[in-house]
Write a protein that binds this DNA or RNA. Structure first.
Lengths: 197, 197, 197, 197
DNA sequence: CATGAATGAGTCTTCATTCAT
DNA sequence: AATGAATGAAGACTCATTCAT
């Protein structure tokens, strides 16, 4: 990576971190530039305004590619194993993209008319649809009851997203893998039993 | 209500509204005072600093009382009806306290070391426990399987909280009662089937 | 004068001085506020932006009222005495409004699309017309040759304006009343002889 | 012309244009370098500071040589024809050096202690003297009355300079040759009649 | 108790200028 | 000689907060 794109990247990473820690308004361009190890002016040569930097940061990451891969992986698994894998990957993603997600949620609330809103809406919609397609397939195979697949997807997502969110917000450092497996197992058990024919 | 406490109240209400719309940093004391119909200085006579105003706003509302009442109401209902009622009340609360919730979530993220963190933690813990106690009772009655009641509570909460959150964030105005009953019914169906013996 | 309008006035006076000395861009809001003896923020509470302050400063002064008065004063004077009085008053005005004029000229050049352009254009047009009316009257009385009165007005103005401008720019402090009377006399002599029948 | 001096020239021309359009402070080195088609650093290699670039630009042009030539041309012309030619040449010069003149005037006002002041002073003084010499010669020939030749020169200059300035500032593009000849004729008529014996 | 006027500290942003290649 | 990248200093402007009435 050449110097330019490395500087660019450093700034985006610093912004990702600080936006997620302090919110868009709470993070100053001065802090961000220092965290990135460059001068404030350099930040502004790379991104013409703070707002554009936010857009860049948000545009940089998505979890849809990972999800597509996932669907091909679970074809041969049992329903329970499939859901377990999906849950694991979802939590992996949420943990990995923790900062990005925090920014997304905070800023979508703060300025509902912004571009972020559209991005966020699209992302969620696509996630729900993808999961719903899986549920419908399984219903057609006769494995599942005929609940509404979209609501199923939202319930599944809600359970894990709130779990992640709570752990992230409340325990922050004490996040442990053991807890996590227990949680996945408990949640999946309920969900499988609740949807299986 | 005398003039003093009415002014006080107006300020808190204005702050609640603006904090929830624009975040703590995004809402200026000037705006808040104007929304409350008083001068900026008056705001500062009532609350010595913006931070204190936030604390006051947050401390003002909780949903625990409503929950306690609820538990006595559902004794005689069937499991399904009980969950439906709980879900309805939870969503009612979330919608009614929408602003408060938004602030809580945003600010807990933004400043993890603040008092809000403790408040939020306690609130959630108590909510989960209360629900868990109900589940445990039902397990002891032999109605439910022996899932971990705390995780059950979290799953239940997660489903409805994320549903509310998504509706709130994405559709904002198009929030309709029909959708809501459909959602409650679908979610409860899955959850009941997933936890009943 | 109450405190508010005195502060307001101080700021305008300070701006007038500094804009005229250093130009619009050269004078900083910080300097202006210090010159006015107030904080920078106070300046911005009184004038929402530097640009508005400029407009206020420019809008504050004009020389048309003085000119109207003048025309009634010269009715009974000889042509030469009338021109001498007009020249004196014009120079008085130019000297008194020195700062204002400097700003006007500089800023009309710098941003031709601004409001100032219209103001300036109107002012000059009116000045020329008023003087032309006087010349036409005198032509009708048979006192003057039939030169184009508008061009006569512009010639008269040009002579004295450039004189003022040169003295102002080049000698600044050495401006003396003796020089001035000599100049007026010389210029008027040429102009009278050049236009009298 | 080699590459170096062409680059040098491009920069000076770009600076001339932008300084005259936006003033010294309003024109940024970035803009100037782009207008010149070189990088900003190149500009600074050629001129060690913005201030030096201004001096270079100003030093580049003068109208005295043209004036000297002129004086030899008018020997055989009538007084009226001579003044007409001088006026034409003066306006030609002013129009051609429009940018230069604008900068000169603006900057002499803005920073009275600078070198420009001296340059400007010298230039004007020499112009006035040259013209005054012509008037004195004509007085000695008995063609003109015995007005003070220096003031005559200033009156003549003032009339045409203000005419040019007003046209330049106010009509900018609508500058037409017909108007100009009318103006020259009117002004010269008055001036000739005003100074001829 | 309530307020209009005032402010120091800080915001984002732009400037002329230098460094490394 | 020429440049893309980088910067310290300074710009206009806004913030939460205090003073005098």
């Amino acid at each position: 990576m050449d110097k330019v794109s490395s500087t660019n990247d450093n700034i985006i990473k610093a912004a990702l971190k600080l936006f997620s820690e302090k919110g868009y308004l709470g993070a100053t361009t001065r802090e961000i530039s220092r965290e990135a190890g460059v001068s404030e002016v350099t930040l502004f040569r790379h991104f013409p305004a703070k707002e554009k930097l936010l857009e860049e940061v948000i545009g940089k990451y998505s979890f849809l590619p990972a999800l597509k891969d996932l669907l091909s992986e679970i074809h041969d698994l049992s329903y329970r194993d499939a859901l377990t894998l999906i849950a694991q990957r979802l939590l992996d993603f949420l943990v990995m993209r923790k900062d990005w997600i925090r920014i997304m949620h905070a800023e979508v609330q703060r300025s509902p008319e912004s571009k972020l809103h559209g991005i966020f809406h699209g992302l969620m919609e696509e996630f729900f649809n993808t999961l719903a397609v899986y549920f419908r397939t399984m219903q057609e195979k006769g494995v599942l009851t005929d609940f509404d697949p979209t609501y199923g997807a939202r319930a599944f997502h809600g359970i894990f997203f709130c779990y992640f969110n709570m752990e992230d917000v409340l325990r922050r450092d004490r996040y442990r893998i053991a807890d996590r497996n227990k949680a996945i197992s408990e949640f999946v058990t309920i969900f499988v039993k609740g949807t299986e024919r």
